[in-house]
């Protein structure tokens, strides 16, 4: 059941990314280029997503268990610490350099593997390196 939900959620999420324009680095960089010919349209992606998800998360908060699962995943911390900020800075620089964030990277990999493989390989290498460091330190 959870596998099916996971696949349908991933499929819907990916179709949303493709429809929204988030899969195009041109569009993403145009949105981030506030000092240039700024294209604000991608703000509607985050706006539409949050406005849609907000009531669903609110509904979930009134329940003790999910409709088809054992428990709600609770993020381990609410702390705004140096780790969070430095991670967000590094991610932001990478996002600004190529105009690709993790979701679109995986959708783009299926659309144009030749042009996306280097980014996705490096992204996975970075993810694994950081996870390995964290395990060794913690």
């Amino acid at each position: 059941m959870k596998i099916a939900i996971g696949f349908i959620a991933g499929l819907t999420f990916g179709l949303g990314l493709a429809l929204s324009g988030m899969t195009s680095p041109d569009r993403v960089l145009g949105f981030l280029d506030i000092a240039g010919a700024w294209d604000p349209s991608l703000a509607f992606v985050m706006g539409g997503a949050v406005l849609t998800a907000l009531p669903l998360f609110a509904l979930a908060r009134r329940r003790t268990t999910p409709l088809a699962g054992a428990a709600f995943d609770q993020p381990p911390t609410t702390l705004i610490d140096r780790r969070l900020i430095s991670g967000a800075v590094l991610f932001g620089i990478g996002w600004g350099l190529a105009g690709i964030c993790p979701g679109p990277a995986l959708v783009d990999l299926a659309i144009a593997p030749g042009q996306t493989l280097a980014f996705v390989s490096a992204m996975i290498a970075g993810l694994l390196a950081s996870a390995w460091w964290r395990r060794r330190a913690g």
Binding site: T12, L19, G21, G47, A53, T65
Partner: peptide, 27 residues
């Protein structure tokens, strides 16, 4: 199109949490 795409992303994220209790964080 961005708004409609955002609605689909919101449905997938909110739906995954409400149904399975999981956060749709790609990372």
């Amino acid at each position: 199109a961005p708004l409609a795409g955002g609605v689909l992303i919101g449905l997938a994220s909110g739906g995954l949490y409400l149904l399975a209790g999981e956060i749709a964080g790609i990372t």
